[in-house]
Design a protein around this nucleic acid. Structure first.
Length: 495
DNA sequence: AACAGACTCAACCGCGGGACA
DNA sequence: CTGTCCCGCGGTTGAGTCTGT
């Protein structure tokens, strides 16, 4: 049976609300209270659908709404909450009094995405300084377009002393997962339960969300504390377990071992910290911090199960024949031809698989790279990860460019990243404005190819890993088999 | 000055789930 | 147990505005 419409649509007004309609709605709710949205328009004399009335009230007319721009504190809170709760805007809004889910959603989709683009990055050589602050580049971080002025003016004139009815504010749950050092350490058993039951998952994440807003320690951003958590990230709610893989005991100190020491690749940490300290207490720029340990071959069969995920299928799409065609097209679209003969050289594929995800498990980054590309790609992946949402990213170095490609978003999103990466490749110390301009202009390219979504579906198996957070990154090394996990300190958000 | 397109954000849409008969 | 109503949520759209060329 088809669903009945929420209201009789014929003859109802749509689109922008007028001041008169706002006044009618506000007066009616002041007199009668919220609720009964279906019957409200008729009773109030509005030619609007009940849903539209509700939306207008919730998002605009309520008297307790904050007016004005998102503050820095709110901005940081949104970042942290999103890392934990994902796109559950209503929950996030519940932690930000006076802000609506719609407002936060819009803010995230515009401001924060832009913010991430100005993310300070680490150098390829693991040196001290960030390579480039995109925020200093032309166009970066610059507000363009929009209707803020008029909108703000309207907001200041509309919505007066109307009462507020019940609203779905989420009460802060008791904190139970946090240790005194402010790092969140989960009991593996609880973690298991949370992975299995959706309810547990929601509760635990909300608890973490509340705690994240309470913490002031530099450890704020840490969500993982145990290898058991990583197991669940990797294996999800599956019955399979990595138990027996022989995870070395790291304790909960957060002290991590540099994968550089084991793998001989580019240092993951920036070099700002001697001795492979955690970096979680460092106040300057974002850093990747290794967390994982070497995997020994005794449990390779289980490891192979892990690697036999749909990751394999995805890899094939990305890197095998079809994938190469795709790369070819991609590069041509970007006008990148690298080699003198107009072609480009296929580099030997490395053995690193990289993936990461936003909170609640949407994988946001997947790729693999050669060992010597690892450091930069990790940075790239971390950036993609911090961009959050459902974006997937595949990074690779070609001709000095690191292309980041979205698996889920449309081509324009991918090209923005690619252009952004190209910008990074521009020698800034030379002040070559022309090259910079060319690189930045690539950001203007837009494509709409939704079919890509259908051709490259995300493996369901990788979805909904409860402890995946935008602050974390996992790398799976095939030979020798090893899994590294990285924690991005919360300072990564402090731009 | 005109234009293209980037950007914001209010509003719409479809769906899921709870309540209830 | 089933069907319906209603609410609320998250994703998406597109009008309006601004900026760069």
């Amino acid at each position: 049976m088809g669903r009945s419409p929420c209201c009789e649509k014929v003859g109802l007004k749509k689109g922008r609300w007028t001041a008169e309609e706002d006044e009618i709605l506000a007066k009616y709710i002041a007199a009668n209270g919220e609720g009964s949205w279906r019957s409200l328009p008729k009773n109030a004399g509005l030619l609007r659908c009940g849903k539209s009335c509700r939306l207008r009230w919730i998002n605009y007319l309520r008297s307790d709404l904050k007016r004005g721009n998102i503050t820095k504190e709110e901005d940081e809170a949104i970042m942290k909450l999103h890392a934990t709760l994902g796109n559950r805007w209503s929950l996030i809004a519940g932690h930000l009094p006076g802000r609506t889910d719609n407002e936060i959603k819009n803010y995230w989709n515009s401001h924060l995405g832009r913010r991430i683009d100005s993310f300070r990055r680490l150098g390829l050589d693991g040196g001290d300084a960030a390579v480039l602050d995109l925020g200093t580049l032309p166009g970066a971080g610059k507000r363009r377009g929009g209707r803020t002025s008029r909108s703000a003016a309207r907001k200041n004139t509309i919505g007066g002393a109307v009462g507020r009815g019940q609203q779905g504010v989420v009460a802060s749950p008791p904190v139970s997962l946090v240790q005194s050092d402010h790092s969140v350490v989960l009991d593996p058993d609880q973690n298991q339960a949370s992975s299995v039951t959706n309810d547990g998952l929601v509760d635990a994440n909300e608890e973490m969300a509340s705690e994240l807003l309470c913490c002031t320690s530099p450890m704020d951003g840490r969500l993982w504390g145990t290898d058991a958590e990583m197991e669940h990230v990797l294996l999800g709610p599956s019955e399979e377990s990595l138990a027996g893989w022989g995870w070395p005991d790291q304790g909960d100190s957060g002290v991590m071992t540099s994968s550089e020491e084991r793998g001989g690749g580019v240092p993951v940490t920036s070099g700002q910290e001697e001795g492979g300290a955690t970096g979680l207490g460092v106040e300057r720029g974002p850093e990747l911090v290794t967390k994982g340990e070497e995997m020994v071959g005794s449990s390779s069969s289980q490891a192979e199960k892990l690697l036999d995920w749909d990751l394999e299928a995805m890899e094939a799409k990305l890197w095998d024949e079809a994938g190469e065609m795709w790369w070819h097209s991609e590069l041509q679209d970007l006008g990148l031809h690298g080699l003198a003969d107009g072609g480009y050289q296929e580099e030997p594929l490395g053995s690193w698989l990289i993936f990461s995800g936003t909170s609640l498990g949407d994988v946001t980054a997947l790729g693999r790279c050669d060992k010597d590309e690892k450091g930069f790609l990790e940075n790239e992946t971390s950036r993609a990860t911090n961009e959050g949402n459902v974006t997937g990213a595949v990074g690779r170095i070609r001709f000095g460019f690191s292309l980041s490609l979205s698996l889920y978003e449309d081509y324009s999103e991918r090209l923005v990243r690619a252009a952004d990466d190209a910008t990074l490749a521009v020698p800034q110390d030379q002040g070559d404005a022309r090259k910079r301009s060319a690189a930045m202009n690539m950001m203007g390219r837009t494509y709409k190819d939704r079919s890509y979504h259908n051709r490259h579906p995300l493996p369901r198996r990788l979805s909904h890993h409860p402890w995946m957070s935008s602050e974390h990154l996992i790398l799976i090394h095939r030979n020798p088999l090893r899994i590294d996990a990285f924690t991005l300190p919360s300072t990564a958000y402090a731009l």
